[in-house]
Simulated scan of single mutants.
Amino acid sequence: MTLETLKPKVEDIIKHSSATVDERLLDICKFLEEQITHYNWVGFYFKNGNKKELKLGPYVGEPTDHTIIPFGKGICGQVAVSNQNFVVPDVSAQDNYIACSITVKAEIVIPIFVKGENIGQIDIDSNTPNPFTEEDERFLEFVCEKVAEIIN
Rank of each mutant, 00 (worst) to 15 (best):
E4H: 12
Y97N: 11
N118G: 12
Q94V: 15
W41E: 00
E135A: 15
H66C: 04
I14V: 13
I69P: 00
G43N: 01
M1R: 13
D95Y: 03
K55T: 15
P89D: 08
L32T: 07
S82C: 08
I110V: 15
P89G: 09
V81T: 15
Q84N: 15
N96F: 04
I110T: 15
T5R: 12
L25N: 02
N50S: 13
L140D: 04
I28S: 01
V147H: 00
N127P: 06
V79I: 08
K7N: 06
I110H: 01
Y59M: 05
I75D: 02
V79C: 02
P131G: 11
G43Q: 01
S126I: 07
F71L: 03
D136H: 09
V147N: 00
Q78R: 13
E117H: 14
K15A: 12
V88D: 07
V21N: 10
D123H: 07
I124V: 15
N85D: 13
E107G: 08
C76P: 00
E23P: 02
T64M: 03
D22M: 07
T133L: 07
Y45N: 01
T67E: 10
T64E: 06
V81Y: 07
I69W: 02
S18P: 01
I102V: 12
H66G: 02
T5V: 11
V79K: 00
F31M: 04
L54T: 09
E149Q: 15
N118R: 10
T128M: 09
Q78Y: 11
K47Q: 10
P131L: 02
K115H: 10
L32F: 04
K146C: 10
G57A: 10
V10R: 00
D123V: 03
N130F: 03
E11D: 11
